[in-house]
Design a protein around this nucleic acid. Structure first.
Lengths: 192, 192
DNA sequence: TCGATTGTCTAGCGCTGCTAGGATCGGGCC
DNA sequence: GGCCCGATCCTAGCAGCGCTAGACAATCGA
């Protein structure tokens, strides 16, 4: 028994190594540089080993996305629980979200720009994704306003944040006014 | 002289053919299916011909993006000029933007998701992109509210629309409530 | 009519994601 | 203890990718 357990543990370790290495490489040089050959070389195994853990590159991206979603949920909850009052909470949430996107661009890409083969807004959506949305909902639900469905409001607010994050990162928005854009967004959207 | 003119005209025609074919193929089968080989085959020339018109695939994507930006600007202006009153104009603008993204997904990808090698928010930004932003600004400037920079407001509103467009298209938002999300966004962001 | 220029194609380079099939290693049984 | 068999891993290779060098043909000016 213990031999099998050790092997399973080693396999799980290696899987984590693959995901962590893919993420690291993507943050360092972008997802285009994450090829199966380079990834295999970095983990010091041959390419086919990757395919014994994941169906393909897409699933590796998906794994990084899931990891990122879990981290983002933690960060969002930490930020909101440290703030006093609805307004401060929403502002902290927005800034944390955008900070996360800015400081983990490859992970954010894996979550939202690339195809990681993950199901969204469905029953079989993976738990970390649902939980990240829940973290948004917990904070934003209380400022949705009367007669507005909290879920719908969260979707809209999230979309606005995602728009700011992705347009900023792609250089589609002037870089200087990020703070002012966040303030405007919070002022207008949240009913405080 | 007339021979040279004919050749230039034919060259320009072929360039348009390349862009139109790339766009068509992308809309039919997605940008992944737009390979230089397939594209060359469809225009009935060999691959190197593509490179006599464009530096590479990226520039072809950029050309499609520019074409799309011009069309979007036209559509936005048509929609806003047909609506009466600020509120109706903003709603029409938002719906037209999202409709464009939904009905021309490949073009929208070329504009905002893929790298077409275009400069944004800079001096050397191509004219069609500036003009599409101007079309947004013309409508949104009048509902920015007191003391709010129209440009900044337009950026935020645009980001929200882009967020809704890209999250919807990627299946990240439940498909049924699109109208309600637009209404909520317009209600809250625009000062009417 | 000849040389130069322009235009186009064939063929191929180095890379990609992915996989078939052989070698090797280690646990379980006699 | 020694052998066998299954699990594990690697080498080698496939088809396709973006892109380009160099050969070839067509056309223009003299």
């Amino acid at each position: 028994m213990s031999v099998q357990e050790r092997k399973q543990r080693e396999r799980a370790d290696r899987e984590r190594l693959i995901v962590a290495t893919a993420r690291e490489l993507a943050e360092q040089q972008g997802w285009d540089a994450v090829t199966t050959r380079r990834l295999a070389e970095r983990i010091e195994y041959s390419q086919p080993v990757l395919y014994s853990h994941f169906r393909g590159k897409r699933e590796i991206i998906g794994a990084v996305a899931l990891e990122g979603a879990a981290e983002m949920a933690v960060a969002l909850r930490a930020a909101t629980s440290a703030a006093d009052g609805p307004r401060a909470r929403v502002t902290a949430l927005a800034r944390t979200y955008l900070d996360f996107a800015e400081h983990n661009p490859a992970v954010y890409d894996a979550m939202f720009r690339l195809d990681g083969g993950l199901a969204f807004a469905k029953e079989d959506t993976p738990e970390p994704l649902k939980d990240a949305f829940a973290a948004l909902l917990e904070c934003l639900g209380e400022v949705a306003g009367n007669g507005v469905d909290p879920g719908l409001f969260t979707e809209v607010f999230w979309a606005a944040l995602h728009g700011l994050a992705s347009l900023s990162r792609a250089g589609r928005l002037p870089p200087g006014d990020a703070e002012r854009r966040v303030d405007l967004l919070v002022d207008r959207l949240a009913m405080i």
